[in-house]
Design a protein around this nucleic acid. Structure first.
Lengths: 191, 191
DNA sequence: GTATTTCATTCACCTATGTTAATAGGAACG
DNA sequence: CGTTCCTATTAACATAGGTGAATGAAATAC
């Protein structure tokens, strides 16, 4: 087994026989990105389902004023791409970029069709995987509604304690929906 | 065909042969709710996939202070439930309530298993349906990040012009993540 | 190794939205 | 039919977070 992180990610949702896993593993596209490299950018059609085997990435949208809004931050063991663009063949609105050197495992359309056709358990996995992502974003909306910036900050560093060392503070601020100056202010009051 | 709204909803994503549709239609659970009735509440395990055949509903979460936060507002022709609770058998965090007399068509587990097993096209539909819902919530997060309360209000009434007549303003305010007083203020400045 | 850019922090000031309280209209209820 | 509750609105004041500018530190480039 070359990628135990991936195997573990599958088994979080489904019971995956090892040979069914290996059948996929041999078809994966392995990709290494440096820090600050893009996996894809707004306007492209996404051709892969990317799994973060090791690293850290963000998903952001640029508004009319050119300002970046970080929508997601995801690291090792998680998927981060644009399912919608992948399955619909429409252009994505998202920019997916690494925050550190990152190693990806990617499934293209041919492989997706092959594994779901030959191993229906993968179909179930992807449905469950989307559902989980969907619920996470509903919770994020709730969080944006019910918690103050300070509470969101404290919760974030509780969940990912080393995040502050791993990515620039201005990206964390954007994710929290505040300005870097406000993040500084909050951090100051917690020293 | 008893429920053309439902048939249309399916055909937005997939090509559904009429007999495959009818096979489902005969198994649907039909339910009528009055204004302000609950479909389900926090703590319950959701046993159905509900389709709004006619009406209007909200999804809200109650925080520790007892305050309601409206996460979704959805009407005729859309699905609104808790996929996660339905598929995982875990208790939901959501409260789903009608804003007006509402007519629902519901799929229970038995029916879901039957139709996906006998007509794989339904499996595809539900995957696409979740994907669409997922993308909508990502856009909602972006909207909360990039637009002011005033912009969010104007966009909302542009999309659903008669919403103000259909549901109490305090629920719209909650959905926009502002207080009713602020909504009044914004509305006043647009008269 | 120096120059240049990028990032984090601080401060003074500003603004959008929250908070509290008062009022009034309408719906629901006996 | 009057009473009670619920909702919407307004106003005065409070505050979280935004804005713009200045500074220094750190990363990157040359």
């Amino acid at each position: 087994m070359k990628y135990p992180n991936l195997y573990k990610a599958f088994n979080k949702h489904i019971d995956l026989p090892i040979d069914v896993y290996i059948d996929l593993e041999d078809r994966l596209i392995h990709k290494k990105l440096d820090k600050k490299e893009f996996l894809f950018r707004e306007g492209e059609v996404v051709k892969y389902l990317p799994f973060i085997n090791d690293g850290l990435m963000i998903n952001y949208i640029v508004d009319e004023d050119g300002e970046e809004h970080v929508i997601q931050i995801r690291g090792t063991g998680l998927w981060l791409g644009d399912l919608y663009s992948f399955f619909s063949d429409l252009r994505t609105r998202f920019n997916i970029q690494t925050c550190q050197p990152t190693e990806l495992l990617m499934i293209n359309h041919e492989t997706f069709d092959y594994i779901t056709k030959n191993h229906p358990v993968y179909e179930k996995f992807f449905r469950l995987n989307i559902q989980e992502a969907y619920v996470q974003t509903l919770n994020r909306i709730y969080n944006l509604h019910s918690a103050t910036a300070e509470e969101r900050y404290l919760e974030l560093i509780k969940n990912i304690p080393d995040l502050l060392d791993k990515i620039p503070h201005y990206l964390i601020a954007s994710y929290l929906n505040i300005k870097p100056q406000s993040l500084s202010r909050i951090r100051k009051s917690h020293k």
